[in-house]
Amino acid sequence: MQQEIDRLERDITLLSRAIAFPEAPSLASRVRSRIEADRTRRAPSWQLALTAIAAAAVALAFIAGVASPARDAIADLFDRINIFETAEVPKDLTREISGTQVTLEEAEARLGLPLLLPGDAATTEPDRVLIQDFRSVKAAVLFFRHSDGTPYALFETNAPVGKGLPIAGKGVLSSSQAQPVRGLGDEAYWLTGLRIVQYYDPSGAVIRDSVRATEENTLLWSANGRVFRIEGNLTQEQAIGIARSLK
């Protein structure tokens, strides 16, 4: 009897070596999408609309063979910031940059970090300064004018530059709307087209107050452990020039 069992054990071992399993599908991004979908299920109507739009954008990208769901079409660029492409924006979603108007000194104090200012602005003082306080994430928004008169907003946040976890690097690089920029800070991207911007809290939940749409050209980069963003109808060269002039 033991001999028979030994023989069966040998057969099983041989079978396990000989069998060719079907190729395992890539489940990671799909599971992530399911998790995110469950989170938004209890979200307010405009958030649901956003989710639908994001899903539609993802689906379109997928059909077009441009990207795979969740991973490629949604670009988690930094730890607490998510910017993703969209084809349309819900009517009740703002494009305005909200916040409390403060002085430059107050903004710096509330951000808890030294603000960097562009050397390329028409004036050294910003037109106005807002502080966005999303509790776990804060951003100072400095409104300047380029030397050619084009207005732009400089965002300086206290969001950590990733724990290295949520960055969908492949998506960033493959997206037609997010192109990597070389030679600026630690990592930089040039974003164009209609997008949704939102911040996350440390638990990974979207901060509702932070969600807005934008169609302005955006330069997003990290440097020295900090995250910066310039939004405005600037050219890429102009935005990079401003970024390089920060001090």
Partner: peptide, 20 residues
């Protein structure tokens, strides 16, 4: 702590075994 991206990476590591 609710970090879905971290779980995504875990899935990436273990998805082959799970599927098999």
């Amino acid at each position: 702590q609710g970090d879905a991206a971290a779980f995504e990476e875990l899935v990436r590591r273990h998805q082959e075994g799970a599927f098999r």
